[in-house]
Design a protein around this nucleic acid. Structure first.
Lengths: 119, 119
DNA sequence: TCGCTATATGACGATATAGCAAAAAGTTCC
DNA sequence: GGAACTTTTTGCTATATCGTCATATAGCGA
């Protein structure tokens, strides 16, 4: 045992800190934004490419990107007429990976118990 | 190099998967819920204790707990009259730790660049 | 400058959610 | 059963957010 899991011993957080953390998680709490991040994980994309890939309205995509930018998760580089977007904070990949892994585990667990219930 | 960071090679996620992930993150996107989780990181607590500790209304705390329970993050054990709550999914600690660490890094970076700008 | 393209911003309606108060539901003890 | 207690559920209002349409801003070429 003795896994270096390093979960800190639960400090109590200030209201301001909680607000900050909540805001970050809120940025990840909309399917459309997750879709954008998911697309950007494949590589840089212009806003137009993201609009096309998502099939959503241009204004909508632009606003979601602005929010992700404010949260420091997405960066934008102007290139002539177009804006090229990219993932600016590797935490995005880590958080999403972690969440996906956990969901997969849960699903498999549920499937297994369901299967054994049907046996 | 060659750090086993293991960020998966960016699979494309289905709409259903995105909904699920978004719902999980949304559970973490309210300061009051984070406060509850933060308190539970110190150990199990009854709903009443959480109400007192947060200074919020009973109904409010109860609803937030229900949401966290639905998200699989909090568990509840009935003990006589009271309901004892606890963190049911270690991912909560990991996600919050990760986010806190990241924010701390950002703050320190900002402070440093500010300081150097004042020099 | 004018037209064209790419993106951002503002206004609006529809929907969701937080927080509060009151009622309901479930437990324990008498 | 009934009182006392803990928690959940239900209405309600206020606020926030999503998606869309319309408009504004900015770069590029003729």
């Amino acid at each position: 045992m003795s896994q270096k899991k390093s979960t800190t011993p639960a400090k109590q957080l200030s209201d301001a800190a909680l607000e900050l953390i909540a805001t970050r998680f809120r940025a990840l709490s909309e399917p459309m934004r997750l879709r954008l991040l998911n697309l950007l994980m494949l590589g840089e994309k212009t806003v137009g490419q993201l609009v096309e890939a998502t099939g959503s309205g241009q204004a909508n995509v632009s606003k979601h990107l602005a929010l992700l930018r404010d949260a420091g998760m997405v960066g934008v580089r102007k290139e002539g007429l177009t804006s090229v977007c990219f993932i600016a904070d590797p935490i995005v990949n880590e958080l999403c990976d972690m969440m996906c892994r956990r969901l997969r585990e849960e699903m498999e667990g549920k499937a297994k118990s369901l299967a054994s219930g049907l046996r």
